[in-house]
């Protein structure tokens, strides 16, 4: 199994498309950092709007590395599923397209093992992407913008809130958030890999994955009670942004944030369970179908 995994990772590492993802992340992060370095105040003004009538705030302090990373992740984690699909959607279909699938399946390697290894390789790729994002969006931002307390602008139901997390309470939240994002993106990887079993070129599963994510995300965001109550809980995309839960700090009765606390850990935990459930289910279906599949490519 480890031997196969090495082979898979080696193959991924040798493909140019692997590095597209890393380059794309670097580019997006750089643009964000440049834009905020140049004119972060406008963004702050937009977010603060009428609060500025009653409060003054040192905006240069507020636009710090921690804040930047949150802003970047907010946008980037919407795009990263595409990058994950780029690799995971190619896992089986790419081999089928090249004609190597039939060759590796005539090797003394069980299909279950192969699909698990493919999945694991996609997972490792996803984690590498996130590590890269952490380096670029968090550590580089910390270097450029410095470190200070972090402000979170948040819509909670009908209300908007501004949360402040003291700087010594931020890092662990990022680690947890990146961990959560890894689980969420692994669902995408599992989905893309499942779709890739049926295809003989990698474009189909990649596009199909992206379409599913987009459609589900759109449905997730339909603010109609009947959809919110009956459909939304069943869409995995509703849980993709759950990493933010780690930044929703718990507060006392009179609204003072409690250091080291989470507002709603059970909700995050349940989301994690649901996502992990999706991974197991998708992977199970993949194994089942792949074992049964006749290789005709």
């Amino acid at each position: 199994m480890l031997r196969l995994l090495q082979i898979e990772l080696y193959k991924i590492s040798k493909r140019p498309r692997t590095y597209i993802a890393f380059a794309a992340i670097s580019a997006i992060v750089f643009i964000f950092q440049f834009a905020f370095k140049a004119d972060g105040e406008s963004y702050m003004n937009l977010m603060l709007q009428n609060v500025q009538d009653s409060f003054s705030l040192d905006k240069t302090k507020a636009i710090n590395g921690y804040f930047m990373c949150y802003i970047i992740l907010n946008t980037l984690l919407v795009q990263v599923p595409i990058l994950v699909a780029l690799i995971a959607g190619d896992a089986i279909s790419g081999e089928a397209n090249m004609g190597t699938l039939r060759l590796i399946l005539t090797k003394p390697v069980s299909r279950t093992e192969l699909i698990l290894v493919k999945f694991l390789a996609s997972f490792i790729f996803t984690v590498m992407l996130l590590v890269w994002m952490a380096i670029m969006a968090l550590f580089v931002s910390m270097f450029i913008f410095g470190v200070d307390d972090m402000l979170i602008f948040r819509v909670k139901g009908e209300e908007s809130q501004i949360l402040q997390i003291t700087k010594d309470d931020v890092m662990w939240r990022y680690f947890a958030a990146f961990g959560y994002a890894a689980v969420a993106l692994t669902v995408i990887a599992a989905l893309a890999m499942l779709l890739s079993i049926f295809a003989e070129n990698s474009i189909g599963p990649i596009i199909a994955t992206v379409c599913i994510v987009i459609v589900c995300t759109v449905v997730s965001n339909i603010n109609v009670p009947i959809v919110e109550r009956n459909v939304k809980p069943w869409l995995f995309t509703s849980y993709l942004v759950g990493w933010k839960g780690f930044f929703y700090i718990g507060t006392t009765e009179d609204g003072e944030p409690i250091k080291g606390s989470l507002e709603n850990w059970p909700a995050i935990r349940n989301s994690l369970y649901i996502l992990i459930g999706h991974i197991i289910l998708l992977l199970g279906i993949s194994v089942f179908l792949f074992r049964k599949k006749d290789i005709l490519s």
């Binding site: 031997r3 040798k14 493909r15 090249m98 060759l103 590796i104």
Partner: peptide
């Protein structure tokens, strides 16, 4: 099987090494 297909983006050595490894 039909055409001898392999990983076009890898070298001859890598291809052979990969399939040798997979064959144990």
């Amino acid at each position: 099987i039909e055409r001898p297909d392999m990983y076009k983006y890898l070298s001859a050595f890598d291809n052979l090494a990969i399939f040798a490894k997979m064959s144990g």
